[in-house]
Amino acid sequence: QTQEFDNEEEARKAEKELRKENRRVTVTQENGRWRVTWD
């Protein structure tokens, strides 16, 4: 699953929550947008 964010702060917040659920999370930056991908 993927979700896009406008800034790193929001993306990192989402990453932190997903990691609490023991998910594999990848955060990438593309064209000024932050993308959080998880399984």
Rank of each mutant, 00 (worst) to 15 (best):
E4G: 04
N22W: 13
L18W: 11
A11C: 12
R35Q: 11
Q29H: 14
A14T: 05
E9G: 11
E8L: 03
Q29L: 09
R33M: 12
Q1D: 09
D6E: 12
N22G: 15
A11P: 00
A11L: 03
D6T: 05
W38V: 10
F5I: 01
D6R: 05
R33G: 05
N7E: 07
K16Q: 10
V25L: 03
E21D: 13
R33F: 11
E8I: 05
E30F: 09
R23Q: 14
E15N: 01
E17Y: 07
K16L: 13
T26Q: 06
R12A: 03
W34Y: 03
N22V: 03
Q3L: 14
E21K: 13
R35V: 15
W38A: 05
T28K: 06
T2Q: 09
E10P: 00
Q1S: 11
K16R: 10
N22K: 10
G32E: 05
T28F: 12
T28S: 10
K16S: 10
R33D: 02
N7V: 06
A11I: 01
D39I: 13
A14M: 12
E17W: 11
E10A: 11
W38M: 05
Q3M: 14
W38T: 05
V27N: 01
T26F: 11
R33Y: 11
R33L: 11
E15C: 05
V27D: 00
N22L: 08
T37D: 06
R24M: 10
E21M: 14
L18F: 10
N22T: 06
W38K: 02
N22H: 06
L18E: 03
N31T: 02
V36R: 00
R23T: 13
K20L: 14
W38H: 05
E15K: 01
E4Q: 08
K16D: 09
R24D: 13
T28D: 05
V27F: 03
T37I: 10
T2D: 06
R23C: 05
K20M: 11
R35N: 06
K16P: 01
W34D: 01
V36H: 01
V27T: 03
E21Y: 11
W34Q: 00
E10L: 10
K13A: 10
Q1R: 10
E10Q: 08
E30Y: 11
E15D: 02
G32F: 03
G32R: 03
Q3P: 03
K16Y: 14
A11Q: 00
R19E: 10
Q29I: 08
Q3W: 14
T26G: 04
E17F: 08
W38Q: 02
T28M: 08
F5S: 00
T37W: 14
Q29N: 13
K13W: 13
T37S: 12
Q3H: 07
V25F: 03
W38E: 04
R35G: 02
N7G: 06
T26R: 08
A14F: 15
L18T: 02
K20E: 08
E8W: 06
V36I: 04
A11W: 02
V27Q: 00
T2M: 15
W34M: 00
D39Y: 09
R19I: 06
R35P: 00
N7D: 11
R12M: 06
D39P: 04
T28W: 12
R23I: 14
